[in-house]
Design a protein around this nucleic acid. Structure first.
Length: 256
DNA sequence: ATGGTCGGCAACCGA
């Protein structure tokens, strides 16, 4: 079983390269974030053509998440708080023999802003949701763009970024609380080193080429899933040939 | 080298 996550920064712009990647890599499940499309305009037919179902929660202009899958999901939920008007940042369900949650955590803007407080709250509420619905003995993957780099290995210049948004102790504390509850950062089971990034800010000149990036996308798993993991990797060159996203694909393969 | 980040969406906001 192969699962991947990718922040598209517009699913419509990335659609051709996305389809190409899915055809060649054949993931069983693909979690998308920042699809930036309203539900009525989600390109479900294009994914159906290559054998994928989709569940999604979109909104106009911002955010938006989707799960594409070869097999149908059950008990799909498209909101963290369960409200109609909340931002489109959460989609989850049960797929075959495990539970899946796909998130797009708020970016936070700057540490002195209301948006940062919202980000911290959202991370706390995500943990509360997980505590309420699961135990660490359940097979569960929590996947997506968390907009937080966990430690010094996860950014290019930790000294320079110390205390900034995306690399702030209060964010890291909340992401670690998720791990402490019973989730393993699965990339780290296979790769201990630094410089393994999933995001390169468009505003950094030649950022991708110089590998000035961040690891802010994760595949987290409870022990039953961590034990099944065979390999986890970043497909660094897969952002899209023509019009690359600022993120790339993170992929995990499991037994069974 | 002769430019300067993207995407949505129609002036800027968000990342």
């Amino acid at each position: 079983m192969k699962i991947a996550t990718f922040n598209t920064n517009s699913v419509r712009v990335r659609l051709p390269s996305l389809i190409q990647w899915m055809k060649s890599q054949q993931p069983d499940l693909l979690c998308l974030q920042e699809i930036k499309v309203q539900d009525k305009d989600f390109p479900a037919a294009a994914f159906e053509e290559i054998g994928y179902r989709s569940v999604f929660k979109g909104q106009k202009t911002y955010n938006g998440v989707a799960i594409l899958s070869k097999l149908p999901g059950e008990d799909i939920r498209t909101a963290l708080y369960g409200t109609d008007d909340e931002e489109a940042r959460f989609v989850g369900g049960r797929y075959r023999d495990f539970h899946l949650v796909n998130v797009y955590v708020p970016q936070g803007f700057s540490t002195d802003s209301d948006k940062f407080a919202y980000k911290l709250q959202w991370l706390e509420d995500l943990l509360a949701y997980i505590r309420e619905h699961f135990t660490p003995a359940d097979p569960l993957l929590v996947v997506g763009d968390f907009n937080v780099a966990l430690d010094d290995r996860d950014v290019h210049d930790p000294k320079h970024l110390a205390g900034q948004v995306g690399f702030h102790p209060e964010e890291q504390k909340r992401l670690r609380a998720l791990l402490d509850w019973g989730l393993t950062d699965l990339l780290r089971r296979f790769h201990e080193g630094g410089g393994l990034y999933t995001f390169w800010d468009y505003r950094v000149p030649k950022g991708f080429k110089r590998n000035i990036g961040w690891r802010i996308d994760y595949i987290l798993g409870t022990p039953p899933m961590a034990e099944r993991a065979i390999n986890v990797w970043i497909d660094r060159e897969a952002r899209g040939a023509d019009k690359p996203s600022d993120h790339t694909f993170l992929v995990a393969e499991f037994e069974g």
